[in-house]
Each structure stands twice: as C-alpha cells, then as structure tokens.
C-alpha cells in the first residue's frame, strides 16, 4: 500500500524525498509475513541491480524500544533463462525468537515443489529453513529509539543474469561480495521464458505487525 508514514505521536513522517512510500505490512504475530511482487521479463541477459531506500519498524502499539519486534526483511529475485530457474534470496535478519541477530543471510536450498493441479506447481521458499549467514554480513542498522521514529537506509543488490550468480550487496557502508554464493536453482520450467520477478518481503518476530517501507526502487541493467 501507499503510506505517508503517519505516526500517532509525531504526525506524518513522509517518505525520504516526498510524501509517500511503498509499504508492506504483515499481520500481527510472530512469523507473520507479507510479500510483494513485481512480475516482469528480462529483455536481455545482463548484469542488473536493484537499488532502494528502505526502512522497517513494528507497529507502534507500545512506546518501547521494540527493536527486536521485526524479524527480517529481504528481497527475492525469480529468474529463468533457457536452462535454469533460480530464486536468489537474501534477507537482513534483525531478530529471531526475540534475540537480536543483525546479519545478512542467503538461501541455497528450500523445500520441494508442490503440485497444485492443472500442471501447476508451487514452492513456499520464504520459510525459516536453510538460511545461511553471508560471510562478513554482520551489520547494525540504525534503529532510532521508538517505533514512531523512522530513518531511511540505502540498499542495493546486484545479480548477473548471464551467469545466474549474485554480484554485490550494499547496505549503507557495508559492501559484500556475493559472487561465491549459490542460489535456489531448478531446471527451467515451462511457460517461464525470461521470467524476472522482484519480490520484497518482511516478517514479524513479535505479536505486532511488521512494516517495511521503500522510497523508490530503481532497477537498472545492461538491457
């Protein structure tokens, strides 16, 4: 949804550069998750990157620090070339079961596809299984005192559609070389030629809603 980040105490916070930001909101409850998709195809296999300014906060139901109430936020790409479908996915794990984690993770393995009939299969690959720490990926992201104060952060994630490998991740002043990391990888599937989806997600680690905001998402590549 489109939010102007209005808080009960401070009024409208606004986006980074204007009034509005893209908002993802989970339901209340530990493990509750929400996902948003932009479904595209790529014109040409090339290097590409996603850039954004983001912020996340729990719903301000308590005037407490609440810094461990959001579990994680992350980005999944869903890409298919002529041979393979890959689901590169990374997340910033803020907290797990109430314990601060403050680290970037990736996933190489998930669960099996499930047949949902009419030649269609599905996979829920957003679960807690098989997340692995990205080497050097510990990072403290500014969390400003209470849920109603919001600070924006820069993020980019690069991927090479020619090689189906990550390139780099950057969050503020942390830059990580991801070129050695694997992804979820399957044989190419019917009907998904040149598939290219971008999928941000956020989940809660408390009984509160978790909110993820973007002020602009820029996708660029050597298309």
């Amino acid at each position: 949804m489109l939010s102007n980040l209005t808080q009960w105490d401070g009024g409208t916070h606004g986006g980074l550069t204007g009034s509005y930001a893209l908002k993802l909101a989970s339901r209340p409850g530990r493990g509750a998750q929400t996902v948003s998709l932009k479904r595209m195809t790529f014109p040409r296999a090339c290097t590409m990157q996603l850039e954004c300014f983001f912020t996340y906060k729990p719903e301000a139901t308590q005037l407490e620090l609440s810094d461990s109430d959001v579990r994680s936020w992350g980005v999944v790409f869903d890409i298919q070339n002529s041979e393979h479908r890959v689901l590169p996915q990374i997340r910033y794990l803020n907290s797990l079961n109430g314990e601060l984690q403050n680290k970037w993770q990736y996933k190489e393995n998930s669960i099996d596809f499930r047949d949902v009939g009419d030649r269609t299969v599905t996979i829920y690959h957003y679960g807690e299984e098989n997340w692995k720490d990205i080497p050097g990926g510990h990072q403290l992201i500014c969390y400003n005192e209470i849920p109603t104060k919001v600070n924006w952060h820069y993020f980019r994630l690069g991927f090479d559609i020619r090689t189906l490998r990550y390139t780099e991740l950057q969050c503020n002043d942390l830059v990580l070389d991801l070129s050695g990391l694997g992804t979820l990888k399957f044989d190419a599937m019917p009907n998904l030629q040149n598939l290219f989806n971008v999928i941000p997600f956020v989940d809660s680690d408390s009984d509160k809603r978790a909110f993820l905001y973007f002020d602009s998402i820029l996708l660029s590549g050597d298309w």
Binding site: M1, L2, S3, N4, Y20, K23, A25, R27
Partner: peptide, 22 residues
Amino acid sequence: AVIARGEDWVDGSTTEPYEASW
C-alpha cells in the same frame, strides 16, 4: 486492494488496516 481474501468472519472480525490517505 483485496482486504479479505477467503477469510472466515465471525462477530467482531476485522480486516487488516489499509492506508488510503492519498
């Protein structure tokens, strides 16, 4: 926005908050 998609409602059920200030 689909604010309830196949949900069992009972007395007092509410949909999730949806921002519509724009």
